[in-house]
Design a protein around this nucleic acid. Sequence first.
DNA 1: ATAAGCCCCTGCTGGC
DNA 2: TGCCAGCAGGGGCTTA
Length: 285
Amino acid sequence: MPELPEVETVRRGLEPSMRGAVLNEVRLYRPNLRFDLPQDMVTLLPTRRIEALRRRGKYILIDFDNGWTVIVHLGMSGSFRVGAAGALKADHAHDHVQWFYTAADGENFTAIYNDPRRFGFFDMVRSDAAADYSAFAAMGPEPFDPAFNGAYLKARLAASRAPIKQALLDQSVVAGLGNIYVCEALYRAGIDPRRKAGAIAVARYEALAVHAVAVLNEALDSGGSTLRDHRAVDGGTGYFQHRFDVYDREGLFCANPDCQSGEKGCIKRIVQAGRSTFFCPVRQT
DNA sequence: ATAAGCCCCTGCTGGC
DNA sequence: TGCCAGCAGGGGCTTA
């Protein structure tokens, strides 16, 4: 599923019951997802208190009071369900990991991780070494960080001959963007996704940074985008998929006033680096 | 160093 | 109706 808005929606869903909670039990229903599940979750986490839930890029970090941090990546199809410990059961297909915990107010909860494609994973690191975790060591700035701006993008991509679409999917350039929001941000900024990253002017990068932040914020306000698998922890869907300008809209008309006539819609689908790109060749140059 | 291709896995959709 | 190719919010690994 999950790009920054979807991952942050999940993090925000977990936080109210988990923050300050004491973990009672961890159950693993299979040995591995994309990678082996850390068996240490079963032995090292029960009786420990959850101090914080953080997000970095598309990763969720859960900090425990004994100096361990659980790192979760949702892959393409990962989701959590949270509910009362007595009522919510791990009985769906693809329920792989279950936590039982007592919230700060004394109520007993369970959280179940479900992932049909099993591209997600769990890992455990010492909290004080989390920044050195392989996925984070070279990760680019968060989009909401002031360090993410046009000057940064221009400098970071000055030597890149890759198309801007592909460059923005690189998590070492900027954290948290994925296929949907890159397409949407490039549309809003009016930049052709095929354009070489190193040849784009700083002013256009300024616009791109502003529009990327805006589209992410709007998606966040909508609970993310649900195409198939993305769910909030209460099972609710996101709504931003109804507000896509170009993503998954091949053959339709974009909002550009100059694009409202003709036999066929202006929005094209092409493949870049094996992934679909949706864009309007009229609006995006 | 950078970039492209392949792969992991299940489920759904569209075309025949 | 049924079958199957193609495609899906990601990213790590290998190869050029």
